[in-house]
Computed example of a mutant assay.
Amino acid sequence: SSLAQGENVYLRGFGSFVIKKRAQKTARNISKNTTIIIPEHNIPSFKPAKTFLNEVK
């Protein structure tokens, strides 16, 4: 629920869940040969903590 509200979540020793913004871009619909505009939107992202990466390795 925190990510849905735009807040980042940090878990010490595990990693962090952050919200990143994807920029607006144009895409093509190949079957209809048209271009569409994909608006700017937010996506969740995970970055593992250094201690977690070392334990897994």
Rank of each mutant, 00 (worst) to 15 (best):
F14C: 01
A23W: 03
A23H: 11
G6E: 04
N29M: 10
S31H: 09
P48W: 07
N33A: 14
K57H: 09
I37L: 11
T26M: 13
N42T: 12
K32H: 13
V9Q: 09
T35G: 10
L53I: 03
R28K: 15
V9G: 07
F17G: 04
L53Y: 00
Q5C: 02
G6Y: 03
F14A: 01
T51P: 00
A49M: 02
N8T: 11
I30F: 12
G13Y: 10
A23E: 14
F46Q: 02
T26H: 13
S16D: 04
N54Y: 06
K50V: 01
T34G: 10
F17V: 05
E7M: 02
E55V: 00
S1I: 05
P44W: 06
K25R: 15
F17N: 08
V56Q: 05
K32G: 10
F14G: 04
G6N: 01
N54T: 06
S2R: 13
K50S: 05
S45M: 04
Y10Q: 14
Q24F: 01
K32F: 06
K25E: 13
L3E: 00
L53E: 03
P44A: 00
K57F: 02
K20A: 02
T51K: 08
E40M: 07
P44R: 05
T35D: 13
G15Y: 05
P39K: 10
P48T: 07
A4Y: 05
I30A: 14
Y10W: 13
